[in-house]
Amino acid sequence: MPNVKTLVFIIDKPLHGDIRAQEFLDMAMMAAAFGQRVVVVFEGSGVYGLIKEQRADVLGLKNITPVLSALSVYDIHDILVEQESMLLKGVDESQLGIAVSVQSRSEIKQTIDSANHLFSF
């Protein structure tokens, strides 16, 4: 396939509370639809977004967790979570709602170094 780039999307904010995370994931899915290699990285407060059983409906918001589960449908299989952030935020792997790959900061740095473009919000 001509011109496949590696695009890394960094989520370092909680997923609910404003619209940006939802719009950000739209970008990632569009990139995958364009045949690009998409990697999604959760770090910092972004790891809170992975915790299962979120009740966004209480605030009248759309729950984004199903979107995360659907990323694989878009051929997005590289969903990385930074180990140090999980420790810092007190989030355990058993609390997570989707299948992810927990990696160290240095491993994630290698992925980021290999990216053609980085996105954040």
């Binding site: 011109n3 970008m27 569009m30 690009q36 473009h117």
Partner: peptide
């Protein structure tokens, strides 16, 4: 739509946010 963003990202040497 977002397709034009992706087209720009793919065809550009740099994408600056």
């Amino acid at each position: 739509g977002l397709g034009l963003l992706m087209e720009a990202v793919i065809d550009s040497d740099r994408h600056v946010t």
